[in-house]
């Protein structure tokens, strides 16, 4: 009998941040009310871009290899499963080791839970919940032939590079046809680079200087706060 499992594709450019995937995911009884998919704004305040992130099911998963309790298992279909409940000690190694930031530790139940590609559904030949409801096709479940026919201007790859580390995954990501490897670098964190944190700080300083609004509470700031901050001419120019 052939495997009922197909391929999972993420097409980041198509995500509109509607969170339908998260709502559908949290319907699942294995993690009631808690979505295992992450939808994040990539640069809040600067860009409306959002990124959906499911478990990429690495061929050599850093989460499983760094688990001191041997609680994360990979099955014969390449699915990396949630922690085995009796074993997981909620140490957080998996959460901190995963290059994609996927596993979630629930402190209150002392357990790591993560996307298992809706194992109960995919095992029975169905689509994962998120891919079933995604209105834009940012999350797609099917065969390589199907996705190539549907999106000829992109191509699926499953090779990532994080700094010096190459990671191969079971889940595919759609990229332009001349890209062979998803390179994740972090130039914004290089020494001397203008990071998003600096930007946020500058915005806050500006709000405080002009005594207009506290961006978080939408209330005028107390005067004492505004008067204490200063800004350099360079920064004022930047803003």
């Amino acid at each position: 009998m052939s495997s009922p499992f197909k391929e999972f594709f993420i097409d980041f450019q198509r995500c509109i941040g509607c969170d339908a995937c998260a709502a559908a995911c949290s319907e699942c009884n294995t993690h009631r009310g808690e979505p295992m998919i992450h939808v994040d704004k990539t640069d809040p305040g600067h860009s409306p871009q959002t990124t959906p992130m499911v478990c990429m099911h690495c061929k050599e998963p850093a989460c499983a290899l760094s688990c001191p309790a041997d609680a994360i298992k990979i099955d014969e279909n390449g699915i990396v499963h949630s922690s085995l409940k009796p074993r997981c000690i909620a140490c957080r190694n998996c959460e901190l080791a995963c290059p994609f930031g996927v596993p979630k530790i629930s402190e209150n139940i002392q357990q790591m839970q993560k996307c298992d590609m809706c194992f109960d559904r995919t095992n029975a030949g169905k689509k994962p919940m998120c891919a079933t409801v995604c209105p834009t096709g940012a999350l797609f479940y099917g065969t390589l032939d199907e996705i190539r026919a549907l999106r000829p201007q992109s191509k699926p790859i499953n090779r990532w590079r994080f700094g010096r580390q190459t990671v191969e995954t079971r889940v595919w990501v759609m990229v332009p046809t001349d890209v062979d490897e998803m390179v994740v670098d972090w130039p914004e964190l290089m020494a001397g680079a203008e990071g998003p944190v600096d930007l946020a700080m500058k915005l806050k300083e500006r709000f405080q200087l002009e005594g207009i609004m506290d961006p978080e509470n939408h209330e005028p700031l107390p005067e004492s706060l505004g008067s204490e901050t200063t800004t350099s001419p360079g920064e004022a120019e930047f803003l």
Binding site: F12, D40, T42, E95, L96, W186
Partner: peptide
């Protein structure tokens, strides 16, 4: 910093930007 010194959420944000 090494990738593991970025928080899981930070990693996901940077992945989106890298893409």
């Amino acid at each position: 910093p090494t990738w593991n010194e970025v928080s899981p959420k930070g990693r996901r944000m940077l992945i989106g930007r890298a893409h």
